[in-house]
Design a protein around this nucleic acid. Structure first.
Lengths: 214, 214
DNA sequence: TAGTTGACAGAACATATGTATTTTTCTATA
DNA sequence: TATAGAAAAATACATATGTTCTGTCAACTA
């Protein structure tokens, strides 16, 4: 911790300790009170210094939005991952097998628990994405998407949706519009598709993305 | 997560995701806006419910003082893949620690072997992405990027580059142009930056991306 | 049916909290 | 010493943010 004035060092240490104790960052006035600083402006002054020196990050005008850089962050304890089956490839117009028959799938992917919590892992599966229909949702060709099996979805969620009478499955954002459903690609060059609600079946919701650029 | 209404479940999930992305908790109005809830009082009402059910802890009258009470059961199962340290946050203009001092980092991420082969894992590390400077490369705010430490890079590769005399590190595509270097954000709304070659140091190359949408 | 209760809405309110402005004090140096 | 610049102080300001109050409405229930 180089080039900090004594006051800046004390402020930094206090923020660190406060976060460790409380789980959230102190307000400027908390710092002022604790360190017996005469004015909030002095705290603000030194916080700016700390930020420009790269020791903290702040979000303007937002209460208690101080993050420490290069310090232990209160991130969840990381334990282990889980393996889920890659059931197939998904693209506009491509059918996929139903998630149940994972037995016959010999491809699988290790899922970081950052993406999928330890609970309810049984109903997560993976699909390899074909095509660029989801680029605007930052999903590229070749990515692996992780889906949690669920038969319902909220408006705007990204889901694997099956069109029953065509027996096709696509990866789209879903919007319920009365008795019809809009399936919206995340690609401005592509058109939305509309189907009767009864003809669409949600097969799962996207909960994660894994990309290999190596 | 038992006995939660759907709304409470969504609020809980949003808080969790918000903290993971921002490092601090959302304000009541953040929750209200994101989940399209009509009134702050409804959020407050459900936060009280979440608290009395033991899922969160709050500090009265204090902004953003929501803590998640972690009910995560320690599941030790680790199958494959490798754990690499998450060394910090990377964003335009923010310094990160050099990959060597991974000792002091207690955050880590489990990497699918699909992204990083089993060999040469020692020089892989992870950074959490802050900001949208790489959206056109399909990397979003909050993503975790995996980097393999290397001091050289080919034109067009995505790298963590350190500008020596500013001691800053950014995630950019790199182009060597004679005795200068162009650092190109993957976001059409942002400008490229130019530096003398001698002033730029490659800290690693992006080999993977992990995103949590759960 | 009248009363009760849980969930939600709308609007106001109180204050917690980040910023800006101006002035004063300290400190290094020509 | 004079003086510029950094740091601190005092104060006011703007707004971000938690809380309260009153009311609606549907689902129960005596």
């Amino acid at each position: 911790m180089s080039g900090l004035s004594q006051r800046q060092q004390r402020i930094y240490d206090y923020i660190k300790q406060f976060i460790r104790t409380n789980g959230y960052a102190p307000a400027i006035r908390d710092i002022q009170r604790e360190l017996s600083i005469s004015s909030t402006s002095v705290v603000a002054y030194n916080l700016r210094a700390l930020e420009s020196k790269g020791h903290i990050r702040r979000e303007g005008n937002i209460s208690r939005a101080i993050e420490l850089i290069n310090a232990e962050q209160p991130l969840p304890t990381v334990l282990g991952g889980q393996r889920v089956p890659v059931l197939g490839v998904i693209a506009a117009g491509q059918p996929i097998p139903v998630p149940n028959d994972s037995a016959n799938s010999d491809d699988s992917v290790l899922v970081p628990e950052e993406i999928v919590g330890n609970d309810k892992l049984g109903d997560v599966y993976a699909l390899r994405v074909k095509g660029y229909s989801m680029v605007d949702a930052l999903i590229a060709d070749g990515d692996i998407v992780l889906l949690r099996y669920q038969a319902t979805a909220e408006n705007g969620e990204m889901v694997a949706a099956r069109i029953r009478d065509e027996n096709e499955v696509t990866l789209k954002r879903i919007y319920w519009e009365g008795d019809r459903v809009r399936l919206q690609p995340a690609n401005v060059t592509m058109e939305a598709m509309y189907y009767p609600s009864t003809n669409v079946e949600v097969q799962g919701r996207v909960v994660g993305v894994i990309r290999n650029l190596g």
